[in-house]
Amino acid sequence: MTRGRVTISIFALLLILTGLAGGLFYHQISRPGPLTAPQRILVERGKGLGAIAHMLEQRGLLRDRLSFRLTARLLKADRDVRAGEFEIKPYASVLEILDELRFGDAVLRRVTIPEGLSSAQIVALLSETEGLVGEIDRIPAEGTLLPETYYFSYGDERQTILKRMERAQLDLLALLWPDREPDLPFSTELEAITLASIIEKETANHAEKPLVASVFVNRLRRNMRLQSDPTVIYGVTGGEPLGRPILRSELDRETPFNTYRIKGLPPHPIANPGAASIAAALHPADSDYLYFVADGKGGHAFATRLFEHNANVARWRRLLKERATSSETVLK
């Protein structure tokens, strides 16, 4: 055999071996991985490819980290891996994991802000929300945040979520304020939110919010005191729950928020109202009601005259007494 033929044979053999090696490597990185259940992983900002590969191996997503690193280098993907939280499906191959970290959607978390919280309570809730980072530099003014469900990615700033809530409140007002009912007994957006915050604290029943709004609007038009218990509580606690019945001394206490003592609206909102309460303040029901009290069924009994209201109050108190007696009997 001539030297030329030997050289060609060796070259052909090398090609075959290279092809076999390449085929084996492709099989290694494309075959199903060891993960047997969906798993969320967190790729932190600034983490290098080696650290990511080690983490994936430790979490049971890779059989060996070397194949992941080599694949990323060969595909020039080592700089494309993004920070974030990702959901990896069961039996994901090396190629599929790498593809998810490069092009997949980061997992969205969510935080739900209940309606009627004070701004300080909302800040406290965000401070305890896992996945958010950073400090909140100030407590926003009362009534400037829109309670809603907000989605975020791991590592988003708490301050950013707060700004989104403020923006959502402004956007909602921009939509609802121009279409408000004519001749309302207030003239500013701040007053509207203040009334909405009282409605929010008085009832969680969305269906009756316009009726509750009508009571307060009718009272404002007649220059009657609003006599709303939540305003008394806010004057005492500054937005924190009272945790007990209101005392007579607190009803008589002079505060800027005690609507048993002042006429008109308090100087600013007593909570952050939801969209339904804001809409109710701007579109109250057409009614002659001036009074309401709990009816014991999750709603309220409304009245146009004081004697009717007194009868509703008496009925409510009897119901409370009956419930207390029933509870005592059960305890015995």
Rank of each mutant, 00 (worst) to 15 (best):
T2G: 13
A12H: 04
Y26L: 14
Y26T: 06
L35G: 03
T36S: 10
Q39K: 15
Q39I: 09
G48A: 15
H54K: 09
L56T: 11
Q58I: 10
R59S: 14
R63L: 12
L66K: 06
S67T: 14
T71P: 06
A72C: 05
R73C: 01
D78T: 06
G84C: 09
A92Y: 13
D99T: 07
R109G: 08
S118F: 04
L126N: 05
E130L: 12
G134I: 06
D137G: 13
G143L: 03
L145K: 05
S153W: 03
G155T: 10
E166M: 12
L172W: 09
L175I: 03
P178F: 06
R180F: 08
E189M: 14
A192R: 01
I193N: 07
A196L: 04
K201H: 08
K209L: 08
L211F: 02
R219C: 01
R219T: 02
R225V: 03
D229E: 06
T231C: 10
V232I: 11
V236A: 12
E240V: 04
P241E: 11
S249Q: 13
L251W: 06
P256S: 09
F257M: 02
R261C: 12
L265A: 03
L265D: 01
L265F: 05
P266R: 05
A275G: 00
I278H: 01
I278E: 01
L282R: 02
H283M: 02
P284G: 02
D286F: 01
D288F: 00
Y291T: 03
F292V: 05
A294H: 06
K297A: 14
T304K: 12
F307P: 00
H309F: 09
A314S: 13
L320Q: 15
L320W: 04
